[in-house]
Each structure stands twice: as C-alpha cells, then as structure tokens.
C-alpha cells in the first residue's frame, strides 16, 4: 500500500487476493439509496467487496442495477448512504466526501469503468494508441516513446494487432472496440473495475473471447470488479459472488453457484428457471 495514486504502473500483484490475507474490504457500500423523484432507483443497498473479488449484480431491466453501479462508481450522486474505499494513499475514505480533484484522480487511476457501449468509454476521433495513452497522460506520463510502448503492450494483451495502433476505433468491430475500452481502462493499473453489461450486444463467439480475456486479466492483475449484467451465464463464469436486484432492492445475495443452483427468493427462482437451454 505504499504506492501513491499517481503510480500508474500495472500492479505486479499477481496472486488472487481475497485469500483471507487482508483484513479490510477494498470497497464498502452502506445503505445506498437513489430516488428519481417519487420513484426508487435503488434502495438501502449495502455490500462489501474484498480485494481480488468479483461481484456480479443481476436483475431485469429497471431493477436498479445500473443506477447502483453509477452511484457506487461516482457517476451519479446517491441521496443517502456511504461509499467507503480503501485508497492507496490515505486509507479508507468516504468517496462522496472527497474533494472533486481527489475523486477525479481516483476515477482516473485506481478505478476503471467499462461501459456497455464502447463508444461511451472511448474517444472515437483519436487513434487506438491515443485512446490508451490518454489515460496515462492524465496521470502525468509525458514521455511519448514510453507511452506508445505501454499502449502497444496493452493492445497486445487485449489481442489487438500492433499495426492497428494508429487506426481510429470507429474502424474497429464491436468486439475490438470493447477490448480497446478495456485496455484504455486497465493501462493505469486500477485495483477496482466497474463493468456495465460488458458483453452486451456482442456476438456469442466474441462474447466468449471477451469473457476469457476479462477472467484472465482479473486473475493475473488481482483486480476486484463489480459487473452488472442480465446474463446469468456471464456471471456464472466471472463472478465469485452474486447480488440479485428487483425493484431497486437487493432480494438475494450469496456465492454465485449457490444462488444460481439453489435460489431462495421467488424472483431469483423465476429468473433462473426462465433461462433458455441451448
């Protein structure tokens, strides 16, 4: 925990944390509530996320899962509740009480957000290499050669050919754009990644490749992640733990395979039994 927030080298921590070694959660969400006028976005949601752990949030459209993700990740301001994060520089902090520059720095370095639509997470008018390099420059990198080198390295990690570095993402397929978005996000060595339907709208063959990639990166880099999806197959493969939401409330939580194989709540049972078998 000696690294400063400006330290953007990818974390060398290859081991799966959450091994019971750390005594405090990386992220603690307490009684988070967001209302849209009289309507509930999400209500009284609490959870802990431990280092190296992947939490899946499932539920149908309108269940509040994306609202929750946006509130936790600082994209929406919740009406009530706390978001506590164990920062590298100064320990546990309430993210909502941090100053704006501090929070921005956190979101640019130690956190990452992978949008469902890659266009929301990429700059479509600059090259692939610049998309990756920009986040590095945002945290102070200035040496062009080194930035380009790191960008190339990350393009390789997400299986984008080096010769595409100067192409604009608009010329990429949907799956490539999504992989580029992941590279752009992970280049600063974040410890916590938020993902909103990361495989939504992609062909199944492309989905499989992306899932494999995300799983490998999560393990190699020891990342913690919160993944929102309506796809139960995705969470079964990626998430350690599951939260099921309905009408803004968490109706069930537990070990992913336990929730899917022995669901306790009526809504989860309906959700699981509604999946089409291939």
């Amino acid at each position: 925990m000696s690294a400063t927030s400006a330290d953007f080298a990818p974390s060398p921590d290859g081991g799966r944390a959450g091994e019971g070694g750390s005594a405090t959660p990386l992220l603690r969400v307490e009684a988070l509530t967001k209302r849209y006028g009289p309507r509930i976005g999400c209500a009284d949601v609490s959870f802990d996320l431990w280092p190296g752990e992947v939490l899946g949030i499932v539920g149908e459209s309108g269940s509040g899962k994306t609202t929750l993700l946006n509130c936790v990740s600082g994209h929406l301001d919740p009406d009530e509740g706390r978001v506590l994060y164990d920062t590298r520089a100064s320990g546990v902090q309430d993210v909502r009480l941090m100053s704006e520059p501090e929070r921005r720095m956190l979101m640019r370095t130690d956190w990452a957000f992978v949008h469902q639509n890659a266009r929301d997470g990429l700059r479509m008018t600059v090259s692939a290499g610049a998309n990756v390099g920009e986040r590095l420059m945002g945290v102070g990198a200035r040496h062009y050669g080194r930035i380009r080198g790191q960008a190339l390295d990350w393009l390789g990690k997400v299986e984008i050919a080096a010769e595409r570095i100067d192409d604009r993402p608009a010329a990429f397929s949907g799956g490539m754009q999504q992989r580029l978005q992941i590279a752009r996000n992970l280049v600063t060595g974040p410890r916590l990644v938020f993902m909103d339907e990361p495989t939504g709208g992609l062909d199944v063959s492309v989905q499989a490749r992306l899932l494999d990639l995300i799983r490998g990166l999560v393990r190699e880099l020891g990342l913690s992640a919160v993944i929102v999806t309506h796809d139960l197959a995705v969470v079964r493969l990626l998430a350690d733990r599951l939260m099921v939401m309905k009408g803004g409330h968490v109706v069930e939580t537990g070990l992913t395979d336990q929730v899917l194989d022995d669901p306790q709540h009526a809504y989860t049972q309906l959700l699981v039994s509604s999946v089409l078998q291939v």
């Binding site: 799966r16 959450g18 091994e19 019971g20 431990w50 752990e53 350690d240 733990r241 537990g254 070990l255």
Partner: peptide
Amino acid sequence: EPREILALRR
C-alpha cells in the same frame, strides 16, 4: 461467508 467458502474451495 461466501469468501470463506471460496478460500476453502481454493
């Protein structure tokens, strides 16, 4: 807790 079970399984 789920994370204890995960560590046990590991």
